[in-house]
Structures are given as structure tokens and as C-alpha cells.
Design a protein around this nucleic acid. Sequence first.
DNA 1: AGGCTTATGCTCCTGAGTAGCACTTTGAGT
DNA 2: ACTCAAAGTGCTACTCAGGAGCATAAGCCT
Lengths: 216, 216
Amino acid sequence: MAADISSTSVPGTLSLRERKKLRTRAALVDTALALFTERGFDGVTLDELCEAVEVSKRTFFRNFASKEQVASAPLEALWNGLRDDVEHLAFGHVPVLEVLQEALLVALARMDDGGAWVTHVRRSRELAERTPSIAAYGLQYCDDTSAAIEEALQRRLGLDPADPRPRLALDLVVASFHAALRAWTAKPGAPTHAGLAAELRSVFAALPGALTFSMA
Amino acid sequence: MAADISSTSVPGTLSLRERKKLRTRAALVDTALALFTERGFDGVTLDELCEAVEVSKRTFFRNFASKEQVASAPLEALWNGLRDDVEHLAFGHVPVLEVLQEALLVALARMDDGGAWVTHVRRSRELAERTPSIAAYGLQYCDDTSAAIEEALQRRLGLDPADPRPRLALDLVVASFHAALRAWTAKPGAPTHAGLAAELRSVFAALPGALTFSMA
DNA sequence: AGGCTTATGCTCCTGAGTAGCACTTTGAGT
DNA sequence: ACTCAAAGTGCTACTCAGGAGCATAAGCCT
């Protein structure tokens, strides 16, 4: 899943084979999001998608585990980034919740290419909203990643595996991101990276109130 | 989805047709959980399941939207119960989070038949743990129900639809339940209803600490 | 009792996802 | 430079989930 640096002499440079594979993968994501957006997830068969990218179905399934995954790829990249970062977080004596919030903002900032990612995410999100199977896949991936992160937190913080607190803190951060994503997707106009980050900060700010507020 | 009282004179009594349908449904859930547990989710085809219950595949799909749903039925009943209850909650000036926690405990208590439900949940849970597609379906159903509950909360509390707090509070309650479920499933021995409720209370108690705790 | 509604069964069909085999490309050893 | 092993790719054939149309039977109302 994560790009790994291998056998080539210059670190950070990928072999021809690896670059080709990444290009194929990117082309599949790009074309899939375009076709799904245009004709709907169920209106596009895998055969059509593969034909458009000039790749066989076999190759598709070597890059993605399911039709749903190719539509969820942009957000998976974000969660993978967060998961990898947790390994190197400095915790000091700051509350874990705050460390995780900051880590998500950092992972999000890292996704800021020239706007390609943000455009993909917007499309992916809109598809998920009207396609239950995509939403289901995304939630499950998120849950899996959360379990992996929880495990890392337990290890790095020296906590009892039965302690529910790290997972709850993490789930709260994830729920905040989903809330931010919904709000951001609902906003009309061209999607921006800064806009998404702002929504996320705003939800984080509302979080303490979520625990204490009562009827107006 | 929810049992509705119809045309018969005595409220609470279902017509023969409706009772028969419910029996078929229950038989499908029961047999499905047994077969899936025995041979694995992918080791049982729908045709086999339908044959075992002596029902056609058409009938199966009139009762359930997918193979995954029949395995998730027990927990769906709980979420449906919570969703319906939210319509009649008294909020007073108690924090919404606490009202929701209490509501979930009440909905859970209502599931206490003689142990059949709890046995089904345990099996369903164990299946979900080793079958990603079941887990995905369950999370998506939960998310859908949460959206419906959020909508009800907005309406009943007179809140701005853009206010993220009710959904965050709800997500926290749901996350607590999932944590309790994981802990409960991990415990060996015969599953009990009281045990699950106790786990849930224990997670609720740990919740404030989840926001503030830092490295030991 | 008889007509109406609704569940059910049967059968055919599409498309996701898997597996086996042959072919090509790439990186490494000599 | 040449060769070989390893990995990626394409083709084909297969299983099974899930949906649609039409005919039948069971339960409901008058």
C-alpha cells in the first residue's frame, strides 16, 4: 500500500517497474472517479473501466481489492498517512486526544498537492453519499486503520490493551473528520484544501461542547 | 423494518400472514448464523442457506437486502430500537450526551429476552471479526441510523443543521458501544446480557478520561 | 364463497471477483 | 552483453450474489 523504496541506488527514486505500476494505479483511480461521477457507480462495469484505462481486469484486481476500493483510494491515502505517523509522534505530557488531532491536521496538510487530491476526495465523497457499498467499504477501512492505530498507541504509551481510552480518543478524531468532510462536501463551489482543513479545525473546536451541551 | 401494528383488532397482535413472515425471517437469521459459524461466511452459499430453511432465494431477498444483512440482523434490531426511542426522549436540561447514553442502555435492556438475542449477537460479532464484508455492512447501517438519529435530534432540540455537536455526541455513544462489544466478545465463557450492559457502563465511565488522559 | 392483495417460487440474466496458464518486461548475476 | 529468475500482465473460464418477469398459492376483506 505505502510506496516503498527498494533496490535502486538513489533513495526516493523508484524503479521503472514501480513507477509504471503507480501510473497504472493513478490512471485507474482518475478514470474510475470520472466515469463513476458521470454515469454512477453501478452504471459502470469493471470491464468498461478496464477498457478505458487499457488494462485487463486481472491487473485491476492486482491494484485494488474491490470496485469500491478504487473509489475510496483518496481517503485511504490519508488514513494510511496518519497510521504511519503515529509510529513517530512525540507525546510529552500533552493529552493524547490533542496529539491525535494535530497529527491528523499534519497528515491532511501533507495531502496538499496542487488540488488534485482535494478534487478526488470531493468526487469520492459525493459518490459515497449516493452509493452505500462505497460508504460501507470506506467505513470498514477506517475502522481497520483505527484498530492498527490503537494498537500502536497502546504499545507506545505503555497502556493496558483493555483500556478503552485511546480508541475512544481516536474514534472521536475520526468522527470529527467525517463531520468536517460532510460539512465541506455540502458547501458549493470549487473544493479547496484550506477549506477542508478549516472545517476540521472548526469541528475540533466544537468538540468540548459536544459533551456538555443540553437543550437550548 | 420495525414491527408495525396493522389491520387486526387487538393492537400488538399480528395477523397470521405477518407472524408467518416473522417466523421465516427468524428462521433465516437463526440458520444463517449457525451455518456461517460452522463453515464460514464464504463457505455457505445463499442457495444452501435457502435450501436449509426451505425457502426460495426470492423470499430471502424480500426479507434481507444482502447476505451480509442477515448476519447483522441482531445488532440492527438494537439500533432500530434506539432510533425509534429518540423520538420520545425527555431532554430537560440534562446534557444530550447523558440522555443518549441512558437511551442506549434502555434500548439494550429491551433486547433482553431469555438469552437468544445475546447469543445471536455474540455469533454475529465473531463473524464480523473475521469477515470484512459483514463488518463493513454493519458499520454502514450504523452510520445510516446515526444520520437518522442526528436528524431527529436537530428537530427535537431546535438546533442548526450545521451544528456538529449532536452528531459528535452520538458518535461517541456509538463508539462506546462498539468498544464495549469488542471487550465483551473477547471475554470467554457464555455470553450474558448483564455482562454486555456492564461493559457498556464501564466504557461510559471511562469516557471523560479519554479526552484528557496523557502519557503515563 | 369470491375477488383482491401480497408473499412465494421458478427461471433467466448481469456483473463482481477468482484461478489457471501463457507471455512479456525488468533487475540481477556471470 | 547475455541469461535467468521473478514479477506484472493478459486471456479465458468459472462461481456466486443479486435482480427481474411471470405464474401460483396463501391469507385477507366484504
